[in-house]
Amino acid sequence: MKNLEFPVVGTKVKGLTKFFDINSPEGRKKYFEAKVGKEIRKIRSFLDDKTFIAYMLGKKNSGKGTYSQLIKEIFGKDKIALVSVGDLIREMDDWDSFTKTEKYKRMKRYYRGYMAWEDAVSAHLGRSTSKLLPTEFILALLKAHIDELTGMSIFIDGLPRDMDQISYSLYFRDLINYRNDPDIFVLIDIPLSVIDERIKYRVICPNCKTTRNIKLLPTSKIKYESKTKHFYLECDNPDCKGGKMVGKEGDDKGIAPIKERLEKDEEILRKAFSLYGVPKILLRNHVLVSESNKYFDNYEITPEFVYKLGKGEKVVVSEKPWSVLDDNGQMCNSLMAPPVVISLIKQLADTLSS
Rank of each mutant, 00 (worst) to 15 (best):
D252W: 01
D251A: 03
S290K: 14
Y224R: 07
F273T: 04
G310W: 02
T210I: 09
E304S: 13
V315W: 10
V316Q: 12
L309Q: 07
L283E: 01
L309A: 08
L233D: 06
E225N: 15
D236T: 03
P279T: 02
Y276D: 14
G242W: 02
L282E: 02
L288W: 03
F305M: 13
T210A: 07
E300M: 07
D265M: 03
Y224Q: 06
F231H: 11
K314V: 15
E249W: 01
G310T: 06
R284K: 04
E300S: 09
P321M: 12
P238I: 14
D297M: 12
Y224T: 04
G247S: 13
V315F: 12
I204W: 02
E291Q: 15
G312N: 12
V287T: 06
N293T: 13
D251V: 02
I281K: 03
E263P: 04
L283A: 07
K294L: 15
F305L: 13
N293G: 14
L282F: 03
E313G: 11
S226W: 09
G254F: 00
G312K: 06
E313M: 13
K271W: 10
D236A: 04
K244H: 06
K314P: 08
F296G: 07
S292W: 04
E249P: 01
R212T: 05
K244T: 08
K308Y: 15
I268E: 10
K209A: 05
E319V: 12
D297I: 09
R261Y: 04
R212K: 15
A272D: 05
P257G: 00
K271D: 13
L283H: 03
K280M: 04
E263D: 10
K280W: 01
R261H: 06
L233M: 14
C235F: 01
T210P: 00
I204M: 14
I214W: 04
E260N: 09
I281R: 01
S292D: 10
V278G: 00
P321T: 13
K253R: 07
E263C: 03
D239Q: 10
P218M: 10
I301E: 02
K241N: 14
P303M: 08
K215I: 09
Y295C: 11
Y299I: 08
I301F: 05
R284V: 00
G277Y: 02
K314D: 13
K280C: 04
C235D: 02
E225D: 15
D236M: 03
D239S: 12
L233N: 09
E291F: 05
S226F: 11
L283M: 05
I281S: 02
Y299Q: 08
K280I: 05
K280G: 02
E300D: 10
K259C: 01
P206A: 07
